[in-house]
Nucleic acid binder design. Structure first.
Length: 552
RNA sequence: UGGGUUAUAGUGUAAUGGUAGCACUACAGAUUUUGAUUCUGUCCGUCUAGGUUCGAAUCCUAGUAACCCAACCA
């Protein structure tokens, strides 16, 4: 029957919890900070959190971790919601950490009342200096022993706006000698007179991550709070707050974030690429962002499948981008309508075909009948791919060359008998004769050819702009190289072909349609396309066995 | 030289003391009106050294390496 698929470590935990009756059902959350666009690494987290809830009959909240007004914007909130939906997931509740500011404030007051938090007047530098180092214990702040009443008064004054940014902070009283640096009296509230994208100017103090994230989890009754490895040291604090505040015991689990070859995956770096103009925008098709991949023509199914295949574990990883490309091809192979387009055109003249004659031929749209057929126009002069002709045929060359026979896809077999060169020595025109009885679908010629090439009729072709994308960086792991990661940007990551020719049927294509340009790759219509100027993005090339042969 | 986390083919991920499996990549072949797809096959692995055991990727001991932690970021 169905073979057991092995569980990842989080699924094992959940199954154990469920079997023990610890929870009736699970509740997960996807908690982005709205300070940038989502990337493929977030997709891994989204697929995990939503996927777990789907698998075990639970629910998932979308919660924005918006506790730092200086970095967060509504534009990012909107893009994040769009990207999660596009990936195919539905959240139970759209929530914001800022929804809980009142509640979190009262948690802080509780800690003060219990003698567990104090207002510290030290400067940032002083606090850092007293923090010690990983190998040396810290020192207690001189403000650590303020009275509860004084702390209460001062904290209220902080909230009321009596102080400037940085003048005071609220810290929690734990242990300045703890091995875990996060337990050395962490700051839980800071003063920031900044406009918040949702609460406006209502607050001038904001909770820190450690005093907002876990509290939000707990308020929502999140059962499994899943984050990435770098938060492991925060877990001890996460649990400390839950115990001290006696709130719902959400549990934190950590998995390894996604790294992928030839790209970067930090919002900070991606932001730089955008603001410094190395790419056009967050949704530039070369970006590892969800919106970039969408625009490039990747499908949600292929991304979800990719996330499924890479698995969930705790060790550092660097996933080969070719696995993502495989998933994209696998999906597009099933979905993309086949059409013909010539990217680097050279003219082929069928010398024995009647001048002025046009023929309507039938071509299949896909690998089987369910895709249907379409009509294509054939005439005396055709555009073919420059690389499909060789003046002197190489070994194992199946394409056009003087004297060689080749099939024009869905049309006739032709034989090349001449070619012309321009003054610069480039091939300017190729002459061939066609074999009338070799017509596709009713071939009685009994001629076998090894090569089939694509073409479009000169008379009927439409001009189009085609954008080819290559990897954004020319080293596997730009973040790990010496110096600035931007030194490793691939200067040729975008190639624009302004004079390509595509078949007429493409006039009706829409943004979001996927095509296979036969023998050239998968393409989609770009959002910058207009009726007068079609613009296509190459999503991914086809595997190319000949290119490999040439390399050898 | 503190604490934490992780080590399985080139990459990623299984095997929970009992035949080291799967996918991608690479390579070879078959089919093909896309040098695509599809199909078949091949190469390649348990961090090191000891130990326990009939039997160890798994348990024990000692090493080694990588990553994370000293933001009023998340």
């Amino acid at each position: 029957m169905s073979e057991e698929k092995s569980l990842n470590f989080i699924e094992e935990i959940i199954e154990t919890d469920l079997a023990a009756g610890q929870y009736k059902s699970i509740l997960t959350r996807f908690p982005p900070e709205p300070n940038g666009y989502l990337h493929i690494g977030h997709a891994k987290s989204i697929c995990l959190n939503f996927g777990l809830a789907i698998k075990y009959g639970g629910k998932t909240n979308l919660r924005f971790d918006d506790t730092n007004p200086a970095k967060e914007e509504t534009e990012y909130v909107d893009s994040i919601k769009e990207d999660v939906k596009w990936l195919g997931f539905n959240w139970s509740n759209e929530l914001y950490a800022s929804d809980y500011f009142d509640q979190i404030y009262s948690f802080a007051v509780t800690l003060i009342k219990n003698g567990l938090a104090y207002v510290d007047d030290s400067t940032a530098d002083q606090i850092a200096a007293l923090k010690g180092s990983p190998t040396e214990p810290g020192t207690n702040s001189p403000f650590r022993d303020r009275s509860i009443d004084e702390n209460l008064t001062q904290f209220a004054a902080m909230k009321a706006g009596a102080y400037k940014d940085g003048e005071k902070v609220l810290r929690v009283k734990i242990d300045m000698a703890a091995n875990n640096m996060h337990m050395r009296d962490p700051i839980i509230y800071r003063i920031k007179h900044a406009h918040h994208h949702r609460t406006g100017d209502q607050w001038c103090i904001y909770p820190m991550y450690d005093f907002a994230h876990g509290q939000s989890d707990s308020i929502e009754n999140i059962t499994h709070s899943i984050c990435t490895l770098e938060f492991i040291p925060h877990r001890e604090l996460y649990e400390w707050f839950i115990n001290q505040l006696e709130i719902f015991p959400s549990k934190q689990y950590e998995f390894a974030r996604l790294n992928m070859t030839y790209t970067v995956m930090s919002k900070r770096k991606l932001l730089q690429l955008v603001t410094e103009g190395h790419v056009q925008s967050w949704d530039d098709p070369r970006m590892p962002t969800i919106s970039g991949m969408k625009r490039r023509g990747y499908t949600p199914e292929s991304i979800r499948n990719f996330c499924e295949r890479i698995g969930i574990a705790k060790r550092e990883n660097l996933i080969d981008v070719s696995l993502l490309e495989f998933c994209v091809r696998e999906d597009l192979n099933l979905k993309a309508k086949r059409v013909m387009a010539v990217l680097d055109p050279v003219k082929l003249v069928i010398t024995n075909y009647p001048e002025g004659q046009t023929e309507e031929l039938i071509s299949e749209n896909g690998p089987d009948e369910s895709y249907g057929n379409r009509k294509i126009q054939f005439s005396k002069e055709l555009w073919i791919e420059r690389e499909d002709f060789m003046e002197e045929a190489a070994k194992k060359w199946f394409r056009l060359a003087p004297g060689a026979l080749v099939r024009l896809k869905s049309a006739y077999i032709v034989q090349c008998n001449d070619f012309l060169k321009d003054t610069a020595g480039n091939i300017s025109e190729i002459h061939a004769t066609y074999i009338p009885e070799s017509k596709s679908g009713s071939d009685t010629s009994e001629i076998k050819v090894k090569g089939t090439i694509h073409w479009v009729s000169v008379l009927h072709a439409m001009q189009a702009e085609i954008r080819l994308y290559d990897r954004l960086f020319n080293v596997e792991n730009p973040s790990q190289e010496e110096g600035d990661f931007k030194e490793y940007i691939n200067p040729d990551s975008l190639q624009i072909i302004s004079q390509a020719f595509v078949e007429t049927s493409l006039i009706n294509s829409e943004v979001g349609n996927h095509f296979q340009f036969i023998r050239k790759g998968y393409f989609c219509l770009d959002k910058e396309s207009t009726k007068d100027k079609l613009v296509f993005n190459r999503t991914v090339s086809l595997k190319d066995a000949w290119a490999k042969e040439v390399k050898k």
